[in-house]
Every structure is written in structure tokens, then in C-alpha cells.
Simulated assay, not measured.
Amino acid sequence: MTRYLGRYWQLYALLLLPLAYFIIFRYGPMYGIQIAFKDFNLFQGINGSEWIGLDAFKEVFGMRDFYKTLRNTLMLNFLDLLVSFPAPLILAIMLYELRSAWFRKLSQTILYIPHFISWVIIGGIVYQVFGTQSGMINNVITAFGFPEVPFLTDKNTWLITYLLVGVWQSAGWGTIIYLAALTGINKELFEAAEVDGATRMRRIWHITLPGIKPTIVTLLIINLGHMISIGFERPYIIGNTMVRDYSDVLSTFVYRIGLESGQYTLATVVGLFQAVVGLVFVLGANFVSRKLTDEGIL
């Protein structure tokens, strides 16, 4: 063992930085979980604060806003899963089927760009494009004599806008994993199917999709694990008071009670709740996947 470590010590040395990252930024903050069980005082610190047991959990679960934001979080994530999850898969297959190499590379570059744009900038673009009175689309609609469409002020049309913006921002970047999986499929299978007279759609259905099935299942399980958690920037920046019935989610709820109100104990309770339920979703999805498809991540 010592001889093996001495021979490949450079590889083990490369692990030091990622290990340090996970220890400091992933496992280290777990020490703060105990705030959920204490009457946390910023000046007394974690150790100096008084234990209160499950009182904070009872308070959070008694809040009406908590259940509203939980409902919105599950709804937005579920709809995102239906709309945004298939998008990178379809894009990856379309890019893989392109015969022109230069056009494929150009398309990939254009599709990747939105991922690197800050949500603050995306929010500005959304208001410039979809704004009710000054938005570019509504200016065109009213120019033809039609009434304005409340893309950002009506909760139902806002929901559609929210989902489409999410697809535009994430679909291109999500194709990377699928394209990597597609390159691992034996090309002789496609050639043999083409000789046998299989159409392109038949080749996709019987060769491409089964070939990347483990990747699809793995990503689906990971996405199901995020059903209870949601990013802060997208609903906060695109949302507004007129659509709060849909845009108010757990992350914005934590922001309000944690940073704005200074109720750090309650905010930690919500965060711990999200982590535990997310773990249950991952384990449950993995169990069902194992039973139905013999594929999983554990």
C-alpha cells in the first residue's frame, strides 16, 4: 500500500483541494445545524445560545406563509421538471444528429451563453422584453392593435414566462452531460441499423435513448432530490408583489425571516427541513428507479 501511494502520490495530492473544499464549505457548516434547536443570539454565538428543543419547528410549521411557500416551491420545481428536464436531452440529440461539425460547434456555443449570464442581468432582459407597458413584445402586440399581455403581472402568464426563461437559461448547459454520454455509444450500432433500413427516429428510439438511459435516470434522481429546494435569484428577481401567490418560495421565505427579520433560528429550521426532505426524495426516487429500471445512483 505504501509503495502504491508513493508511486501515485501526485494523484492523491490533486485530491487535497477538492477535499479541503468539501470539508470547509460542505461539512464545516453542518456545525450550525444546532441553531435550529436554540434561541440563537448573534452576540452570544452558537454555544452561548439557549437550547429550546423543537419549539422553533412548531413555530415554523404553524406559519401559514410556510405552507404557501412550500406549495409554490413544489409547484415550480415540478413544472420545471416537466418542462426543463427534457429540453437539454432533446437539444443534445438534435446537436448529435447534426452532420455539419462547424454548425454544431456554433450552435453549442450560442446555447451555452445564457448559463454564464447573471440572473440580475437576465432579470433586466426579462423586464425589457416582457414588460407590460415598455416591453418589446408588448410594443409589437399593441402596434398591431391587440391588447397588452401581462407577462409579469398576471400570475398564470408569469408562470409560463418563468418556465420559458428557465429553459432558455439552463437547457444549453445541460446538454454537456448528454453529449458526453452520446459519444460513448458504439457508432457501429447506428451503421447497422441504417443498413437494416431504420429511419432516424427509429435509431434515436432504439439506440440513442437506451444508450444514455443510465445518464437520464441519474439526472432525474438528482433533480427529484432538488424538488424541495429552489434557487433564490430566479423567483426573487423575476417575481414581484403582483404575482407573490406563485413567486413566493422557500428561499425567499428564508430571506425574509432570516436576513430581513433576523430570525436566524426559524431560517435554519426551514433549511434543515429542506435538506431532510430532499434526502428522502433522493432515496425514494432511487428506490423506485431500482425497482422499475434496475438503474440508480446508490
Rank of each mutant, 00 (worst) to 15 (best):
S170T: 15
F25V: 10
G284W: 09
T265L: 05
L79S: 06
Q108C: 03
Q108H: 01
D65Y: 02
E50L: 14
P18K: 05
I212G: 00
V270H: 04
G32C: 00
D196Q: 04
S247H: 10
Y112P: 05
T208A: 10
R256K: 13
W119M: 08
L17T: 11
Q34V: 14
L111V: 02
I33T: 03
Y31H: 03
L182R: 09
A180C: 07
Y236W: 15
M94Y: 09
M227F: 09
I117R: 12
L179S: 13
F232C: 11
F151R: 10
N240C: 14
V129Y: 06
I24K: 13
R234A: 12
A87G: 00
I125D: 05
V282W: 12
T265V: 07
P114N: 04
V277L: 12
L259A: 02
W205C: 03
I93M: 07
T268K: 08
G172R: 03
M94V: 14
G28C: 12
G197S: 10
V126W: 04
R202H: 09
I222T: 00
F61N: 14
S247E: 08
L259H: 03
L250G: 12
N223Y: 06
A267E: 12
L164S: 11
L5D: 06
I125N: 07
A198I: 02
L106M: 12
L152A: 09
Q44F: 02
P210Y: 02
G271C: 11
Q108P: 00
R244W: 01
L292I: 15
L179R: 08
S134F: 02
S289I: 09
E260D: 12
I185W: 11
